[in-house]
Simulated assay, not measured.
Amino acid sequence: MTARTPSPITYLSGADVAELCADLPIVDLVRDTLLAFRRKEAGIAPETALRWTTPTGASARSLVLPAWAGGAYGCKIINASLGNHRYGLPRAGGLIILNDPETAHPVCVMEGARISALRTAGVSLAAVRAVRDPATLTTVAFLGCGRQAETHRELLVDHCPALEEIVLFDLDRSRARSTATAWRAALPDVAVTVAPDARTAVERARVTFAVTTTTDPYVELDWVPEGGTFVNVSLDDAAESLLLGCDHLFVDDWDLIVDDTHRLLGTLARAGRVGAPGEPAPAAGRAVDADLPTLVSGSYTRPVTDRDRVVVNPFGMGVHDIAVAAAVYAKAADRGLVLPR
């Protein structure tokens, strides 16, 4: 028997993580992880959640998402309060823990908000890239102007060279205006406009990213133009008419949907109105057309035409956080930031 001492635990701060993520190919990392998940070379374990109401009446929760990707094992702990905007704070923040694959001892704790935001935007862009040619996208809309909107914009401009206009809407009109001002400065060749309402923003765009904190569905099918793609990143923007009536509905993982008791798509699934990918459509509803691993692998055989309305509804798989965190940890080791064993 070979004696081993416990590995020291490296801590990577938010600033460390941001610097190490700077040149990572996030969209490709996400796509590769989806393909690995399809090959069963990556996976997730059941999530657990602690939910409560804050003293000021906001909904709060702490999620623990265990996962593995290749030789990396760990979990994300992500906490959020819907009342954080009142304090000028991001809705969510958390930690990612990576474990030694041999001893299972923790080897790294890193701030997780940047990775969580990046992998979320990476999933959105990987899905859009699978159904639309990014080189043809000229107008994109954002519902919500918080951290997720900013992170999506960062990745968007690198993958959509023909982008001409970004349309913003936020219930907080001052935040929408300040975001528009900042984005105009960052993107002088792109027109950034603020829509008077959510419907106008969706109707004007070929792709809409919903990145809000709403728990009340409101985006109807007839808001989305022919050939439009609606990426429902946040909780419950897509209304029943859109989820049931769109031409193609994609999700990241069916089991996550069925187990979710808070969002509309999970409610429809448990009510027997939305069926699993590959199953016949329920009489009073529809089936999910495919999961994202199938979509990005090219195995989805039904054509997505220029007139079809597409909805992408990712619930969030911790496997992407672990894959990105493993890449960050590897870069940290290369730079001498990891404590020696």
Rank of each mutant, 00 (worst) to 15 (best):
A126G: 14
F37T: 12
L98M: 10
A283I: 11
G285M: 05
A22T: 14
Y87S: 14
L156H: 07
P6H: 09
D260Y: 01
T139S: 08
L256H: 13
T212Q: 02
D306R: 15
A195F: 00
W183D: 06
G144E: 01
V190M: 08
G298W: 09
E111A: 12
V194P: 03
S7I: 12
A36C: 06
V274D: 10
T213G: 07
V304C: 13
D259R: 15
A182P: 10
D23H: 15
L187V: 05
R51E: 15
T193F: 03
T139P: 00
A333G: 06
D255K: 10
D259W: 04
S241M: 03
G70V: 06
D289S: 05
C160M: 14
G245C: 06
P55S: 13
S116T: 15
L235C: 06
T151S: 08
S116P: 04
A283T: 15
T103W: 10
L137P: 06
V128R: 13
V128M: 13
E41Q: 15
E19F: 10
V109M: 14
T151H: 03
V207G: 06
S178W: 02
D289V: 00
T103A: 10
P8D: 04
A239L: 00
D289Y: 04
V251G: 10
P340K: 12
T229A: 07
E279N: 12
A45Y: 09
V211L: 05
